[in-house]
Lab assay of single mutants.
Amino acid sequence: GATAVSEWTEYKTADGKTYYYNNRTDESTWEKPQELK
């Protein structure tokens, strides 16, 4: 099967917290998305 390329990108805020942003859905989350686990 084809490997899905994750749409999630990991970013850090100014105070060093990590969050994740999805370019396709324009969604952001503090929790690590399922695709990255």
Rank of each mutant, 00 (worst) to 15 (best):
G1K: 12
G1L: 13
G1Q: 13
G1Y: 12
G1A: 11
G1P: 14
G1H: 13
G1V: 14
G1E: 11
G1I: 12
G1D: 13
G1S: 14
A2K: 10
A2H: 14
A2D: 12
A2R: 13
A2W: 07
A2N: 13
A2M: 14
A2G: 12
A2F: 11
A2Y: 10
A2I: 14
A2T: 14
A2E: 13
T3K: 09
T3C: 15
T3M: 11
T3Y: 05
T3V: 12
T3Q: 14
T3G: 13
T3W: 07
T3D: 13
T3S: 15
T3H: 14
T3P: 14
A4T: 12
A4Q: 13
A4P: 13
A4G: 15
A4S: 12
A4H: 13
V5P: 14
V5W: 12
V5M: 12
V5D: 12
V5G: 11
V5S: 12
V5E: 12
V5F: 12
S6L: 09
S6H: 09
S6K: 07
S6W: 07
S6F: 08
S6G: 12
S6C: 15
S6E: 10
E7H: 08
E7I: 07
E7D: 13
E7G: 08
E7R: 03
E7S: 07
E7M: 05
E7Q: 07
W8A: 01
W8F: 02
W8N: 01
W8H: 01
W8R: 01
W8D: 01
W8Y: 01
W8G: 00
W8V: 01
W8P: 01
W8S: 01
W8E: 01
T9G: 06
T9R: 10
T9M: 11
T9W: 06
T9A: 11
T9N: 08
T9H: 12
T9P: 00
T9Y: 09
T9I: 12
T9Q: 13
E10M: 05
E10K: 04
E10G: 00
E10L: 03
E10T: 04
E10S: 03
E10Y: 03
E10H: 02
E10V: 07
E10I: 06
Y11E: 09
Y11A: 07
Y11K: 14
Y11M: 15
Y11V: 15
Y11H: 14
Y11G: 06
Y11N: 05
Y11Q: 09
K12V: 14
K12M: 10
K12H: 10
K12E: 07
K12Q: 11
K12G: 02
K12Y: 08
K12L: 11
K12A: 06
K12F: 06
K12N: 06
K12T: 14
T13F: 03
T13V: 01
T13D: 13
T13N: 07
T13K: 02
T13P: 00
T13E: 03
A14M: 09
A14W: 04
A14E: 11
A14S: 09
A14I: 12
A14L: 09
A14K: 11
A14N: 09
D15F: 04
D15L: 04
D15T: 06
D15M: 05
D15G: 06
D15W: 05
D15S: 08
D15A: 06
D15N: 06
D15P: 00
G16Q: 00
G16D: 04
G16T: 00
G16K: 01
G16Y: 01
G16F: 00
K17D: 10
K17Q: 11
K17F: 06
K17T: 07
K17E: 09
K17V: 05
K17R: 13
K17W: 04
T18M: 04
T18Y: 09
T18E: 08
T18S: 11
T18W: 04
Y19W: 11
Y19I: 10
Y19M: 09
Y19E: 05
Y19G: 05
Y19F: 09
Y19R: 05
Y19V: 06
Y20N: 00
Y20R: 00
Y20G: 00
Y20V: 00
Y20D: 02
Y20M: 00
Y20A: 00
Y20C: 05
Y20F: 06
Y21T: 04
Y21K: 10
Y21Q: 04
Y21S: 01
Y21H: 11
Y21P: 04
Y21A: 02
Y21N: 03
N22E: 03
N22S: 02
N22F: 00
N22Q: 01
N22T: 00
N22L: 00
N23Y: 12
N23K: 13
N23F: 10
N23P: 12
N23Q: 12
N23H: 15
N23T: 14
N23V: 12
N23S: 15
N23D: 09
N23E: 13
R24F: 15
R24S: 12
R24I: 15
R24V: 15
R24A: 13
R24G: 07
R24C: 13
R24T: 14
T25M: 02
T25A: 02
T25P: 00
T25R: 02
T25K: 03
T25G: 01
T25E: 02
T25Q: 02
T25D: 03
T25H: 01
T25F: 03
E27K: 07
E27I: 05
E27Q: 08
E27H: 03
E27G: 02
E27S: 05
E27W: 00
E27N: 03
E27Y: 03
S28Y: 15
S28W: 15
S28N: 07
S28T: 15
S28D: 04
S28A: 12
S28P: 01
S28E: 10
S28I: 15
S28F: 15
S28H: 15
S28K: 15
T29Q: 13
T29L: 06
T29P: 02
T29M: 09
T29R: 13
T29Y: 08
W30E: 10
W30V: 07
W30Q: 07
W30T: 10
W30H: 08
W30I: 07
W30P: 07
W30Y: 10
W30M: 10
W30N: 08
W30L: 09
E31Q: 09
E31N: 06
E31W: 05
E31P: 02
E31M: 06
E31H: 06
E31G: 04
E31D: 10
E31Y: 06
E31C: 15
E31A: 06
E31V: 11
K32G: 04
K32P: 09
K32H: 05
K32R: 10
K32D: 05
K32Y: 06
K32L: 09
P33H: 02
P33E: 02
P33S: 01
P33L: 03
P33D: 02
P33M: 02
P33G: 01
P33A: 02
P33N: 02
P33V: 02
Q34W: 10
Q34P: 15
Q34A: 12
Q34D: 15
Q34R: 05
Q34C: 14
Q34T: 11
Q34M: 11
Q34G: 11
Q34F: 11
Q34I: 14
E35T: 05
E35A: 09
E35K: 04
E35G: 08
E35Y: 06
E35F: 07
L36E: 08
L36S: 09
L36V: 08
L36H: 09
L36A: 09
L36M: 11
L36F: 11
L36Q: 06
L36G: 10
L36R: 07
L36K: 08
K37Q: 15
K37Y: 14
K37N: 13
K37G: 13
K37T: 14
K37S: 13
K37H: 10
